[in-house]
Amino acid sequence: MNSATAPESPKLKAATSGFVLAAAIAALFNTALAWARDAYAPLNGIMKSLTGNPWIAHCLADVVLFAGLGFLFTKTRAAEKIDPSWLTGALIGAVAIAALGLALWFAFV
């Protein structure tokens, strides 16, 4: 079977769609948390008190959110109904917004 003649299947597996949606949300959360830490110093202090360095707490928050939402969406099959093309577009858009959001924030704020 080659890609030109293969039948098209519109749905992704529950784990794929779940973790794609989780990655899009976690990417945006990552940028929002960076903004919040930079704008509100006490939050940095709280995160430092948790792990010794606020960046480590930031990493853990991202990974826990990504993995937690990924497993939750997989188990509940919540993202499985979403059109795969929309999910792909949402992930690309989320990463682009998150990356630009970081660069612009640290450049101008």
Binding site: A6, P7, L12, T16, P84
Partner: peptide, 14 residues
């Protein structure tokens, strides 16, 4: 990449 990319165009694009 656990998807069958050769038969699933949307998964391949992802």
């Amino acid at each position: 990449t656990r998807e069958e990319l050769f038969s699933h165009a949307a998964a391949r694009k992802l």
